[in-house]
C-alpha cells in the first residue's frame, strides 16, 4: 500500500529536482500528456469500483493515451490546425465523466456499508 505513495512522492521530488526546461512550443505537449495521465488514472479508479480493472488495459491505456495525445498535437501543429483542442476536449470530458462515476460509486459503497452496519 505504501509503495505507490512512495513512488508518487519520489516522482514529485524528481520533477522538482529536474533542472532542465523545454522550449515554449513543447509545453503544449506536456499539458496534453498530463491530461491523458489524469484521464487514465481516474479511468483506472472507476474500473476498480466497477470491478473491471485490468492491469494490462490500465498500463497500456496510460502510456498509449499519453502517446496518442502527443501525436495528435504534433500532427495538429504540423498542419496548422489546433488538434490538441480536440484531445483536451475529449480527455477533459472523460475526466469529468470518470469523476462523476467514481462519486456515485463512493456514495453507493457508503450506503452498502451503512446497510451492513445497521441492517434494519
Amino acid at each position: 500500500m505504501w509503495l505507490p505513495v512512495l513512488f508518487l512522492v519520489v516522482g514529485i521530488a524528481l520533477g522538482f529536482l529536474t533542472d532542465f526546461t523545454i522550449a515554449e512550443q513543447y509545453t503544449k505537449y506536456l499539458s496534453i500528456a498530463i491530461l491523458a495521465a489524469f484521464d487514465t488514472l481516474f479511468g483506472g479508479i472507476r474500473a476498480h469500483f466497477e470491478k473491471t480493472f485490468d492491469q494490462m488495459i490500465f498500463i497500456s491505456g496510460f502510456f498509449f493515451n499519453i502517446t496518442l495525445a502527443v501525436i495528435l498535437t504534433f500532427i495538429g501543429v504540423q498542419l496548422g490546425v489546433d488538434l490538441y483542442l480536440a484531445a483536451v476536449f475529449a480527455l477533459g470530458l472523460r475526466v469529468f465523466q470518470n469523476i462523476a462515476t467514481i462519486r456515485r460509486h463512493i456514495f453507493q459503497y457508503r450506503k452498502q456499508i451503512n446497510q451492513k452496519k445497521f441492517p434494519f
Binding site: F7, L8, G11, I12, G15, A37
Partner: peptide
C-alpha cells in the same frame, strides 16, 4: 507505483 511515479513527475 509506476503510473503514479510518472504522473507525479509530469505534474511537478
Amino acid at each position: 507505483s509506476l503510473v503514479l511515479f510518472v504522473f507525479g513527475f509530469l505534474i511537478t
